[in-house]
């Protein structure tokens, strides 16, 4: 066997180690959630800024659980927004067109900012809609 000739073994992923850094992150999320419930002012925690191992992230994800809403935004790559088991706490993952994660955050808000339509985009959309309404019926159908 190959293994006996040269005992290659995959590095025990240190990623499987919990660093103990996940709990303070969770505490920060809890504080944001409390503030949001009281005043309506939310916030976000950037997971890339924290020295978290993949196991830590998994633990956070598991602890927060899944809620009622999930959405995918197709804007320069897929972004996913999932509500956790705690209403108002969202797990937001941004991917680039190649599918690589470019940002991952926990956002505390009524609706994550990325979902809401921007007024500028809405204005442009309204103008296009109006143009369709104003156009002759035959042209619109064509």
């Amino acid at each position: 066997m190959q293994d006996e000739v040269f005992p290659l073994r995959f590095e025990r992923a240190p990623a499987a180690v919990l660093t103990g850094n996940a709990r303070p992150v969770l505490a920060e999320v809890a504080a944001l959630a409390e503030r949001f419930a009281e005043s309506g002012a939310g916030g976000a925690v950037d997971l890339a800024a924290m020295p978290l191992s993949p196991a830590d992230v998994d633990w956070l994800r598991g602890t927060l659980g899944r809620g009622e809403v999930s959405a995918v935004i197709e804007a320069a790559g897929a972004s996913s927004v999932e509500e956790t088991a705690f209403a108002g706490v969202w797990w937001v993952t941004h991917r680039n067109p190649l599918g690589e994660v470019v940002a991952e955050l926990i956002e505390v808000a009524a609706v994550p900012a990325i979902i809401a339509a921007a007024r500028e985009d809405a204005a442009a959309g309204a103008a296009r809609l109006a143009a369709i309404v104003a156009a002759p019926a035959a042209e619109a159908l064509a």
């Binding site: 976000a44 890339a48 940002a103 955050l105 500028e120």
Partner: peptide
């Protein structure tokens, strides 16, 4: 805007930039 990049895409792009530059999410 001329190139058809939506505000969402741009916001997302900036969120990723902020994250990479170790700036607060806001």
């Amino acid at each position: 805007a001329e190139a058809g990049v939506s505000r969402r895409a741009f916001l997302k792009f900036c969120t990723a930039l902020a994250s990479m530059m170790a700036l607060p999410p806001a």
